[in-house]
């Protein structure tokens, strides 16, 4: 896999996010495949490809969703700051930091959306949104990360072999 595969994966994920993911309601929320894909990609394949995929994902989602173009990119931008966590090697596992990052990235993403709604005068219910949306969404995305992480890791065997030698 390479950057082209990453960009293709992001575009497919954006289409799936709008057309398919809303049909899956877990704890009352829909999984965010884009966040999960980006975190799983950076955790298994390193930051280089993920850094390019993040703005592409934001642009692709922005083109397709109902929000102003640029909002999804802004909400995903903090993920660029998370790409170095893997290099810190705080723990031996790649999966554990990815789970934590998914939770953090989801909270940040949904908070940016909430803030944008507040800026546009929609007066969101903060407490309800945090309890009914942010927390469940973070848990659901962390759960969805597990199979996505496994799939990308499986597809990155060549890269891991190269690194091993």
């Amino acid at each position: 896999m390479n950057i082209a595969a990453g960009i293709l994966a992001v575009i497919v994920a954006a289409l799936l996010q709008l057309a398919v993911m809303p049909a899956f309601s877990i704890f009352g929320v829909h999984p965010n495949l884009i966040i999960v894909l980006l975190i799983a990609w950076m955790a298994t394949r390193g930051p280089q490809e993920a850094l390019v995929m993040i703005p592409v994902a934001g642009f692709a989602v922005g083109l397709l969703d109902s929000q102003p173009l640029g909002l999804a990119m802004l909400a995903l931008a903090p993920l660029t700051l998370m790409t170095n966590v893997r290099e810190l090697r705080l723990v031996e596992s790649d999966l554990l930091p990815a789970v934590v990052l998914t939770v953090v990235a989801t909270l940040v993403y949904e908070t940016v959306i909430l803030l944008s709604l507040a800026v546009r005068g929609e007066r969101p219910e903060w407490v309800e949104s945090i309890l009914d949306v942010l927390v469940p969404a973070a848990i659901v995305n962390a759960l969805v990360l597990l199979p996505v992480f496994g799939l990308i890791r499986l597809g990155s065997l060549d890269l891991r072999r190269q690194r091993a030698f």
Partner: peptide, 23 residues
Amino acid sequence: MHVRTRTWFAFVVVAALLLLLGS
């Protein structure tokens, strides 16, 4: 944190804000 990462973050944020302004 790498300077490169911070620069890229700033670039993405600025690009997003420009897109928001345009939209």
